[in-house]
């Protein structure tokens, strides 16, 4: 709507960015870098490893740059912009080799895809590099489905699962349907809707410790909905949500758990295809 108009003044009245058009995906690359994310690194390393295995199963050579740490999101969402920028710059330097970057988490992928552009908005050279990174960053389910065009072969028993989609995947990354589509490829897996499925689990990074009462009420509702769905387990493609959901379930002394989608897929479809 606003192509005819360009007012570069920083104080110009802003219009909403144009609706995102369907992302164009490249052909399957020979190599990718995996950005594991700090939560996976320390609390869900198996999920990261399973993500690597799934990518390798597609014939892709995976690199895991050992200098990686955190995407910077915790500081960014807490308002510590300078601190977030410093950590972001380290990742930007590290991932500067032009290789596609696969991230097994919607919210960390969202940092690369969207928020680095805000963080480096005032620095032309870094902004250019951030735009480049954004263009070749893919959330894992998106990468498997749209770039690898996987055809999963389910080797597991009949199983019922509930899917929790992270808010970032749903509303920032537009990848919320990808996990669904991947799961739909599994013949023996039935995905069951749960109550208020599109609602946030209450994690929100530091929100969960700044507002523990409200966050606690949200995660109690989410875990209750997941448990009562009739599913045997919950699947999610975001370890932030999983840490929240599983930590709460353990505190509630419930046996029900959530699992990362990568681990679930590898368990059912792993090995040679």
């Amino acid at each position: 709507m606003s192509e005819l108009f360009y007012d570069a003044a920083p104080n110009a009245t802003r219009v909403a960015p144009a609706r995102e058009t369907e992302r164009r995906y490249p052909d399957k690359p020979a190599e990718v870098s995996l950005f594991g994310t700090c939560v996976v690194d320390l609390f869900f390393p198996e999920a990261g490893l399973d993500a690597i295995r799934l990518l390798e199963q597609q014939g892709i050579r995976v690199h895991f740059p050992q200098q990686q740490s955190c995407c910077g999101q915790p500081a960014w969402t807490s308002g510590y912009r300078e601190e977030a920028r410093a950590v972001a710059l380290a990742q930007l330097d590290l991932l500067d080799d032009g290789r596609p970057v696969v991230v097994p988490s919607g919210s960390c992928a969202g940092m690369f895809r969207h928020h680095y552009l805000e963080l480096f908005a005032e620095e032309p050279e870094n902004l250019r590099r951030a735009e480049d990174l954004a263009g070749r960053t893919f959330e894992l389910t998106e990468f498997l489905l749209k770039v690898c065009k996987v055809q999963l072969v389910d080797r597991g028993e009949k199983h019922k699962i509930a899917l929790h989609t992270s808010c970032t995947a749903r509303r920032e990354m537009n990848t919320h349907l990808h996990a669904r589509e991947l799961l739909a490829q599994l013949d023996n897996v039935e995905r069951i809707d749960h109550d208020h499925e599109s609602e946030c689990c209450g994690f929100g990074g530091t929100f969960s410790v700044r507002m523990p009462d409200i966050s606690g009420a949200m995660v109690l509702d989410k875990t209750t909905a997941l448990r009562q769905s009739g599913a045997a387990e919950a699947i999610s493609a975001d370890c932030g949500c999983l840490m929240n959901i599983n930590g709460a379930l353990e505190k509630q002394q419930q046996a029900f758990r959530g699992r990362h989608l990568a681990s679930f897929l590898w368990e059912r479809c792993g090995g040679e295809q």
Partner: peptide, 9 residues
């Protein structure tokens, strides 16, 4: 200051 009104689209 220094900006122009957005056109009517």
């Amino acid at each position: 200051a220094g900006t122009t009104p957005r056109p009517d689209e």
